[in-house]
Write a protein that binds this DNA or RNA. Sequence first.
DNA 1: CATAGGGATTCCAGTCACTGGAGGGTCAAG
DNA 2: CTTGACCCTCCAGTGACTGGAATCCCTATG
Lengths: 132, 132
Amino acid sequence: MNIGDASKQSNLPPKTIRYYEDIGLIKPLRDANGYRSFRDRDIHKLVFLARSRALGFTIEDCRNLLALWDDQTRASADVRAIAKDHLSQIENKITDLQAIHSTLSQLVHDCAGDHRPDCPILKTLETFPKTS
Amino acid sequence: MNIGDASKQSNLPPKTIRYYEDIGLIKPLRDANGYRSFRDRDIHKLVFLARSRALGFTIEDCRNLLALWDDQTRASADVRAIAKDHLSQIENKITDLQAIHSTLSQLVHDCAGDHRPDCPILKTLETFPKTS
DNA sequence: CATAGGGATTCCAGTCACTGGAGGGTCAAG
DNA sequence: CTTGACCCTCCAGTGACTGGAATCCCTATG
């Protein structure tokens, strides 16, 4: 299977697939003409990567998850640890964003948003207290 | 005021301050010895930048906000538009993260996390339906 | 006066995860 | 035989810094 079809199967752009080969996540074979030749296993890995990335795992997370996936004797606890760690990062990010959201929506609410120059948003940006 | 003090006042690392000068956000004077010399106005801008970045505005947003801040005749509506746009981006990001969070926490919940190789997380990463 | 330290300067390279583009080779259809 | 779709590699750019090297400046101490 050529890269175009692999792209369709995995829903990843060809550029990204080449990049994943570059950094050693996949190792497709090569045809005589130099074209990459993707086996089922490669496609499977690409799908796996697309899913994992869509869930926000970093490339290094993906590398570890793929290694565990390849290892039939892995303990599910190892996978779970990576996922839990990622989960708590997501929770932190959501908390941060919610704090930002509440500050900013208050500002937007307070701002008349008319033609006059008076603007509480800018005023606050000058004096907003330190975020720890 | 030298860059070290400006760094303390604004809570931004010196590297970042130099970077902000590079990309034209601030224009500190120079002393005879070549050291940057920060006036109150520069410090004020740095504080403004630190606040805005902490609220997740991009550098380009900050550039626009600073220009409005400099412009005493600006309309508050212009500032409000930038802030509202940013706000809706934040809302989207929170929604995305919450969806990811719910998927992933279900997976973590389903996973025994023991020494056995059976792992629903990896299984799902192979087959998780497309994210639109 | 030599020197040691702390701080300042510039410039180059690296981060993360791609993405765009140039310049060229390959293949199947008409 | 040409067209157009596909494939290849390599280089550079993104955003917002960050790290490090090599060098310079200032102050204080022996």
